[in-house]
């Protein structure tokens, strides 16, 4: 089974941080990257986020690359799309003209995603899904929405197992791997999972989920000082960086 971005019992600095500040840090990093669109600054901030994630959460670079590879096709499309539709000097492939400015913007947007992925991994690999949910609720999110994130992490291994089973079935029919192979596989699994989502939603409601606006939580989470420090330092650097760019 391939690598899944779910909680792993390990010892790292991020493991020792509280979920509220970790979630806040990821939000800050996302906002920071969102405000940037020029390539050098996006590279700088993405590298910073990735470095903190790798050192702080002890994420193996190979694992990060595996996750990034899965969104690489989308990134290439984005670069091509921006290259085609932006004007200015560029290179010509037959009848297609790709502008340098457009491709730079596409690359910046893609790198922005890679930075956010690094932050997200640092959170998901070092925080119990229940704690991510509780942190989201503490940060003002509705428990109904926060539970969706929790459920996604709960069912990720199940989806991966189902995908493997489907690909086994296709391998038996000796279907050659290619775009069609992946499409068929994903469609079959999506249909199966949609049925399961329906059943899960019903199962949750039959246990009174969503009956009241609030719900009790047996587990409580609190804020740790080291987490506050991480968020504060990140916020200061972010504000300084953005002010330097804008003013």
């Amino acid at each position: 089974m391939s690598f899944q971005p779910v909680y792993q019992e390990k010892r790292s600095w991020f493991h020792s941080l509280d979920p509220i500040t970790k979630t806040t840090w990821v939000l800050l990093a996302t906002i920071w990257l969102y405000f940037l669109s020029d390539l050098p600054n996006v590279v700088l901030v993405s590298t910073l986020v990735l470095t903190v994630a790798i050192l702080g959460a002890r994420i193996k670079l190979t694992r990060y690359v595996k996750v990034v590879v899965s969104v690489l096709a989308g990134s290439m499309m984005l670069i091509l799309y921006q290259g085609i539709f932006r004007s200015g000097p560029g290179i010509v492939f037959g009848s297609v003209r790709l502008s340098f400015e457009g491709m730079r913007l596409g690359a910046a947007l893609s790198l922005r995603t890679f930075g956010i992925v690094a932050g997200g991994l640092a959170l998901s690999l070092t925080t119990r899904p229940k704690h991510i949910m509780l942190a989201m609720i503490r940060l003002g999110c509705s428990y109904r929405v926060a539970y969706v994130v929790y459920l996604a992490l709960r069912f990720l291994p199940v989806c991966a197992a189902d995908l493997q089973a489907n690909q086994d079935a296709m391998a038996q029919r000796e279907i050659k791997k290619g775009v069609g192979w992946y499409v068929k596989s994903v469609v079959a699994v999506v249909i199966t999972e949609l049925g399961k989502v329906d059943d899960t939603a019903i199962a949750m409601e039959t246990r009174a989920f969503g009956l009241y606006e609030f719900r009790t939580s047996l587990e409580k989470i609190s804020i740790a000082r080291s987490g506050v420090l991480l968020v504060a330092v990140t916020a200061v650097i972010m504000v300084a960086h953005l002010l330097w760019l804008w003013v």
Binding site: K196, A203, A208, Y212
Partner: peptide, 25 residues
């Protein structure tokens, strides 16, 4: 059971219903 167990640990799963009913801890 795969589709109706919505939590990650046994303890969380059993507490899920009573938590939704807003009973005290």
């Amino acid at each position: 059971p795969e589709t109706q167990i919505t939590n990650l640990t046994v303890g969380e799963e059993v507490a899920f219903g009573p938590e939704n009913l807003c009973w005290d801890c």
